[in-house]
């Protein structure tokens, strides 16, 4: 019998596991209570979502892995991931899920949670600022083009005031650092 076998005590291993008890076991409940999270738990990890996704090969976490991470409570990893922001929102994963898990919608939920915690890519903050300030993402700059086509130079009926009013009271205001 070799020395190694005679040793007692805990076995030696290089594995450094994730301690599940340190994860946020409430996270899946949070997601489930969100607008499209109800079917979350129906996931049986078949990976159809990942198969359907046109860009997941670019990702460190695949869609099915993100759902698993939600189920396991890996809240921080999910909310700080670049993947949720890169989601094309093309809904192909959601369309094909055999268990009707609303995968794309759940990623929307995750983005909202991330936004609440201030984890938003800069360019998206830029868009939010546009919206908060101008009430629209695109404004007419070349009105001669419109006129050439017989359109009114100013868009009929356009008024961004309503939107600006609304966004002053919601999270967007917080995101763009507006006054509360």
């Amino acid at each position: 019998m070799s020395d190694a076998e005679e040793q007692t005590g805990p076995p030696i291993t290089l594995v450094e596991p994730i301690d599940v008890s340190k994860l946020d076991s409430e996270f899946r409940k949070t997601i489930r209570s969100m607008p499209n999270g109800e079917e979350l738990m129906a996931c049986f990890a078949c990976s159809t979502c990942t198969a359907a996704c046109p860009i997941a090969n670019q990702w460190d976490y695949k869609p099915h892995q993100l759902i698993r991470m939600i189920l396991l409570g890996m809240r921080d990893d999910v909310l700080s991931s670049k993947e949720i922001w890169e989601c094309l929102t093309c809904f192909q994963c959601q369309e094909r899920c055999p268990q009707k898990v609303r995968v794309t919608d759940i990623f929307f939920d995750c983005k909202n949670l991330a936004a609440e915690e201030g984890m938003i890519p800069d360019n998206i903050i830029g868009l939010a600022r546009e919206l908060a300030e101008k009430g629209q993402l695109y404004v007419v700059t070349a009105d001669w083009e419109r006129e050439d086509l017989g359109l009114e130079p100013e868009v009929p009926g356009l008024s961004a005031n309503g939107i600006r009013e609304i966004l002053k009271t919601t999270r967007t205001n917080k995101i763009v650092g507006g006054e509360s």
Binding site: A42, F44, C46, P98, Q99, K100
Partner: peptide, 9 residues
């Protein structure tokens, strides 16, 4: 496998 089976649809 599972074409149509194990599917809510």
């Amino acid at each position: 496998q599972c074409v149509g089976s194990r599917s809510e649809d």
